[in-house]
């Protein structure tokens, strides 16, 4: 299946969860704010949320320092 992540098309296996996709991108899920089809996803749903073909995902990743 194909999704659009931060404006770029990306091929993913069927049934990939949001957490799995972040793993593929080598991102720590705790440091990412994820929006799927205009909905901000709560952190405790990252493992359960299955992405579907055509989903639009926006990720904001945070790095440390303040």
């Amino acid at each position: 299946m194909q999704i659009i992540c931060n404006g770029q098309r990306r091929e993913l296996e069927e049934d990939t969860s949001l957490a799995m996709m972040l793993g593929i991108l080598n991102l720590d899920p705790n440091t990412v704010v994820a929006e799927v089809n205009k909905k901000i996803i709560e952190r405790d749903q990252y493992e359960d949320l299955r992405l579907r073909d055509g989903d639009r995902v926006e990720l904001i990743r945070f790095v440390g320092g303040g």
Partner: peptide, 29 residues
């Protein structure tokens, strides 16, 4: 300082605090 807390804060504001202005940070070391 902690990037996980930066994410917690932005999620909280976007999901639960509509209408407030917000300025977060990432990448300043």
């Amino acid at each position: 300082d902690n990037p996980a807390m930066k994410a917690v804060a932005l999620r909280t504001v976007l999901n639960h605090m509509p209408g407030i202005g917000y300025v977060g940070t990432s990448g300043l070391a």
